[in-house]
């Protein structure tokens, strides 16, 4: 479904991605692991068009989306749920959700999806008219996920969905992601909570300094000493 071929990207003089090859099949949940600064977020940003790759190809459903504008990537069916949730703090919950459907024009469909998200996440339904900045961290995470769903994507990129959340909220968040995948949406997830992520993923890639150093079935990586070393050195 999604394929990255030798993708390179840089911020100014710093090369953040040094040739990434990666594949996500339809219906899969794939995890991208690695220590901070390994280039995981940059990989997602390159896919969604926030960073323009300096080399390589990104193919989605047999169409090249390398270097496409974020709006075009979104329109092709890839939503990106960014690191740190990034809800619009002064917009209401409902407006935030509406922003998720910004590229869509089918008013009725949008209204239906809005209701569906609000039913799925009752807390968002209750706080529809409240400014998103007043929500708790966990609620903001629900909102960010709901917002990504509003685009009706076929593939969602999650960037560190557990970041800064209390452990119980992390569990809920992961349950939601598992649920999204069960309903047929493909997921590519960057996560630092490696073991929790590996438990629910089908496959995983491990990154180190801009390269993929390890990949395989999640079950196998679970017991791989190399994963621990990628995080803690030694």
């Amino acid at each position: 479904m999604l394929r990255l071929e030798a993708v390179r990207a840089a911020y100014g003089p710093v090369e953040a991605l040094r040739g990434i090859d990666l594949e996500v099949g339809a219906g899969e949940l794939v995890c991208l692991l690695g220590a901070n600064g390994a280039g995981k977020s940059t990989t997602l940003r390159a896919i969604s068009g926030l960073v323009r790759p300096t080399a390589g190809r990104i193919v989605f459903d047999d169409r090249a989306i390398t270097g496409a504008e974020p709006s075009a990537v979104l329109a092709s069916g890839i939503a990106h749920c960014p690191e740190g949730r990034r809800v619009f703090p002064h917009l209401t919950v409902e407006e935030n959700l509406a922003m998720g459907a910004y590229v869509r024009r089918d008013r009725e469909g949008i209204a239906q999806d809005l209701e569906r998200v609000c039913t799925h996440f009752p807390i968002l339904g209750e706080r529809r008219r409240q400014a998103a900045g007043t929500l708790s961290g966990g609620e903001q995470q629900m909102l960010a996920i709901g917002r990504a769903l509003m685009a009706r994507p076929r593939l969602i990129l999650f960037d560190e969905p557990s970041l800064g959340l209390a452990p119980t909220v992390v569990e809920t968040t992961f349950a939601i992601i598992a649920d999204i995948r069960r309903q047929g949406t493909t997921v590519l997830m960057v996560e630092q909570n490696a073991y929790l992520a590996l438990q629910m993923a089908d496959r995983a890639y491990v990154m180190e300094t801009g390269r993929i150093v390890l990949s395989g079935r999640a079950r196998d990586l679970m017991n791989d000493e190399k994963v621990r070393r990628a995080y803690l050195g030694g």
Partner: peptide, 11 residues
């Protein structure tokens, strides 16, 4: 409020 995220929404 958040230029980059707005871009991610397709703005």
């Amino acid at each position: 409020q958040d230029r980059e995220t707005a871009a991610l929404m397709g703005v």
